[in-house]
Design a protein around this nucleic acid. Structure first.
Lengths: 201, 201
DNA sequence: CCATTGTTTGAATCACGTATCAAAGAACTC
DNA sequence: GAGTTCTTTGATACGTGATTCAAACAATGG
């Protein structure tokens, strides 16, 4: 036998390539040759590793969710103290601008959820984990005395934060001229200040 | 000469048909024959009225924005008193469920905004007018003494409401199992209670 | 009821992307 | 370096949807 090589690495490269292709052509305009070009191989090779294109897209979604979540967690863990951590978390949830690849990708994939339970599950998991992230931050901040939480379940406050984030993210990525990242962040932060009663945010 | 007939009506019918087709096949899967079938005509007829399919889609978007906004305004104007009006407004902003055609349509069209300035303008206009709707309600409620607004520009409070609404709407339409309409409405209402200081909401 | 012009259709054509496949190439074993 | 298997490619076949178009079909004016 022979050729035990790096199938795993190739798959990974294709996943990355497909992610880029989706982010800048959109799901609607996605062509196999774009993925191939992005990965620097021929169209045939893409099919060799992913005879079913849907599997590739699903892999892209999985990767994207994990990477995005890991990056947010990392950024939120970086600073010291609940206040700065909350600030970091808020900042990490909005696209850097209309061309933020990760957010573009996630919103595109998001759109598959209503017709695919697998994608719906990924989207739901992303949401749940973002909620968990905020829940923890709120809880810790309250315990440390930095936040005075409104009289509502922490999980509810967290869900509202994530929903607002998603809403603004959508508008930023869609190039709504009246919603740029900076104003969105300011508004989101203002909301966070309200629910935490923490003027330092 | 002859045949002065109802070109206008035909166009309208096609716009409706296209709207339905988009809502249930998605932009990605949109085929001219689906629109034709939905309108009960042949594919050729669709092209006869809209040689450029993009024009039809744009018309659909315009119609959708106007109709949606008009419906919201109507529902919000119906009750008496600022509190009930606010409640109606909040209820009118979320999809009735994952199959709410209007919301499905709007989110699909929303996705075109990043590659088309015309669509972006429509989306921005929708956002702005929803913000205006909430701004007015908040202002009136405050003037009437029903609301005690948080110390922030009314427009900012309104934008946050719309953003949260959009975020939840997205999840509902995408069939996130942990976000159904009823919980979303409860959470949105809780937020509205917080910023208005109005327990009656 | 004929002429004119707007409308509709279905068939034929075109364009483009996916899927198939045989042949060439590369890595590894012995 | 011969043999074997995995990998890659480019050419080709296939399918689907968009587009074109000539012919049939109405409605209206005279």
């Amino acid at each position: 036998m022979a050729r035990p090589k790096n199938q795993e690495a190739r798959r990974g490269a294709l996943i990355d390539a497909a992610g880029r292709a989706i982010a800048d052509r959109g799901m609607a305009g996605l062509r196999i040759k774009d993925i191939a070009a992005e990965a620097g191989v021929s169209a045939g090779s893409v099919l060799y590793y992913y005879p079913e294109l849907d599997d590739l897209v699903l892999a892209v979604h999985q990767e994207a969710v994990e990477n995005y979540l890991a990056a947010r967690q990392r950024r939120a863990d970086e600073p010291d103290g609940p206040v700065d951590r909350m600030r970091a978390a808020l900042a990490s949830g909005l696209p850097s601008g209309p061309d933020d690849g990760m957010h573009r990708l996630l919103f595109e994939l998001h759109g598959l959820a209503d017709r695919s339970t697998a994608h719906a599950a990924l989207m739901a998991s992303l949401f749940a984990r973002e909620v968990a992230l905020y829940s923890t931050l709120l809880q810790v901040g309250a315990a440390a005395g930095a936040f005075t939480l409104a009289a509502a379940p922490v999980a509810d406050l967290a869900r509202n934060l994530v929903a607002m984030e998603d809403g603004y993210g959508l508008h930023i990525v869609a190039r709504n001229p009246s919603v740029d990242r900076d104003t969105a962040l300011a508004l989101l932060t203002a909301h966070a200040r309200t629910i935490t009663g923490c003027p330092g945010l």
